[in-house]
Each structure stands twice: as structure tokens, then as C-alpha cells.
């Protein structure tokens, strides 16, 4: 599904991703763990197509299509979703309007019909309830004044609304309370299926108790330095990253 092959990424003058290879087959959930500054967010920005995070070498394909030259919105229309580690506040943009505009932009790009206002309202209310955001928040400017946890819930709301083919979740669990962690697990598990894939970036094993990953990778020094089954997360929690930092 998502295939990253010998990817190199430079941010400014510094090479941050240094030959990273990773494949998440359809139907699977993979987790990435790794020390601060190891390049996890850089990887997610590059896959999503952010300016300034250009691949200097290597390939990224989604369902066999090379996406590295696509604009971010084209990648989104192909079903790629990024849950941001630090979601933006966007003053002056009403939350519901924005989500509906985004949803319809994606649908239009896929030659699908726009969602009707009534269907949209119904859907957004249902999903807001699921992620624990009250309706009043949907009428406010996007994320403005929201707590860290509320912003993450807003990311999950969009994940649940858009039902992307492939989602990268960059530290969605950071800043979330225990109930919210479980909610994230519920949202992801409900979407899990043979046609979808997830890449879950996290520092803690806890989220992975709710979302059982098929594989766990360790990213250190811009490369995947170790991969293993779900038990690797627990191991890392005990032993830390020191061995990998030295190896990288």
C-alpha cells in the first residue's frame, strides 16, 4: 500500500532522512517509535508533500502510484491523511465550514458527488460525538483556543469524517487523557480493513494496547534501525533508545 524506498530528505541544508525503507501493506497497521529529533515528523511531512521537505533521493508510492511529485491536495484526494503532531489554529475559519469545504474538495478531485448540507451535518454531529467534541466547538473558528487534547480530537474527527485510505498519525496520543486514548483506538479500529493502512507514530506503548500494530519499527538517525512484532514496543519502553542512538 504505502511503500517508501531508500528515501533521503533534506530540510534546509541538513539531511534528516537518510535512506529510509518501509512498507505498510494494505490492511495493516504499523507503528513507528524513535527518539526526539530522529525524523518521524519529517518523514510524515515528506509523505504528505509539505514544501521544504523534499525528497532528494528515493521513492514513495501509494497503491503503486508514485506520489512524490504530487501536490499535498492531490495526495489528500488519493486518500492520504496526516494527523498532525501540532495541529494548526486557523482564526476566522469556522470549523464546520472548513471540514465541509475540505471534504467536498477531495470528493470533487475524485469525481465524486458533493455531500449535501443535510448529510454533512448529520455525519459531523455523529462523528463529533464519537471523538468527544461538543457541537459548539464545531461552530467556533478552527482550533482557536482549543486545548492540546481538543485539537487532537479534532484530528480524529477529520479522520473519522474523511475515511482515508492511508493515515499517518503523528503522536496523536501525546497530550490525550486515558479516555481519549481509547477513543483514538476505537476510531482507528472502526476504520481498519483490508483496503486501508495506518502508520502510527508514538512514543508510548499505551496507545498500541488499543491499536494492536502488525509491525513496530524503530526510527533513529533518519533510518529504520529495527523492525519487529508488537512486543518490540514493550521492549523499547523498558530499554529505551540508547542502543539505537549509538548504532545510528
Amino acid at each position: 500500500m504505502l511503500k517508501i524506498d531508500d528515501l533521503h530528505v533534506a530540510v534546509g541544508d541538513a539531511e534528516i532522512i537518510k535512506g529510509l525503507t518501509l512498507e505498510v501493506p494494505a490492511g495493516e497497521v504499523h507503528a513507528i517509535m524513535g527518539p526526539n529529533g530522529s525524523g518521524k515528523s519529517t518523514l510524515s511531512y515528506t509523505v504528505a508533500g509539505r514544501d521544504g521537505y523534499e525528497a532528494t533521493a528515493g521513492a514513495v508510492t501509494l497503491e503503486g502510484d508514485n506520489i512524490i511529485d504530487l501536490d499535498p491536495d492531490e495526495r489528500a484526494a488519493k486518500g492520504l491523511f496526516l494527523s498532525f503532531q501540532h495541529p494548526m489554529e486557523i482564526p476566522g475559519v469556522q470549523t464546520m465550514n472548513f471540514i465541509r469545504t475540505a471534504m467536498n474538495a477531495q470528493r470533487k478531485a475524485r469525481d465524486e458527488e458533493e455531500i449535501s448540507a443535510a448529510d454533512f451535518i448529520k455525519l459531523v454531529r455523529e462523528k463529533a460525538k464519537l471523538v468527544g467534541l461538543d457541537d459548539a466547538k464545531l461552530k467556533r473558528p478552527f482550533n482557536v483556543g482549543f486545548s492540546g487534547g481538543e485539537k487532537k480530537r479534532m484530528e480524529m474527527l477529520q479522520l473519522a469524517m474523511f475515511e482515508p485510505r492511508f493515515a499517518i498519525m503523528d503522536e496523536t496520543d501525546s497530550g490525550l487523557d486515558i479516555d481519549a486514548l481509547k477513543m483514538v483506538g476505537d476510531v482507528v479500529n472502526a476504520l481498519r480493513g483490508p483496503d486501508r493502512g495506518f502508520l502510527v507514530i508514538t512514543h508510548y506503548q499505551r496507545l498500541l494496547e488499543y491499536i494492536r500494530p502488525d509491525r513496530v519499527h524503530v526510527l533513529a538517525g533518519g533510518r529504520i534501525v529495527k523492525s519487529g512484532g508488537p512486543s518490540l514496543a514493550a521492549e523499547l519502553e523498558k530499554s529505551g533508545y540508547e542502543q539505537f542512538i549509538e548504532a545510528a
Binding site: A48, G49, D73, A76, G92, V93, T101, A109, F162
Partner: peptide
């Protein structure tokens, strides 16, 4: 970038921010 990741074209994203 956030808006474009959600599917808005470059011009739609700019317009939305200017309007805001």
C-alpha cells in the same frame, strides 16, 4: 499546508485564509 493536506487546492487554501 494544513489546509492543503485536507484537500484544498493552493488557490482555495489561500482564498480561505484571506477571507478569514
Amino acid at each position: 499546508f494544513y489546509l492543503r493536506q485536507r484537500g484544498l487546492s493552493a488557490s482555495a487554501a489561500r482564498a480561505l485564509l484571506i477571507e478569514a
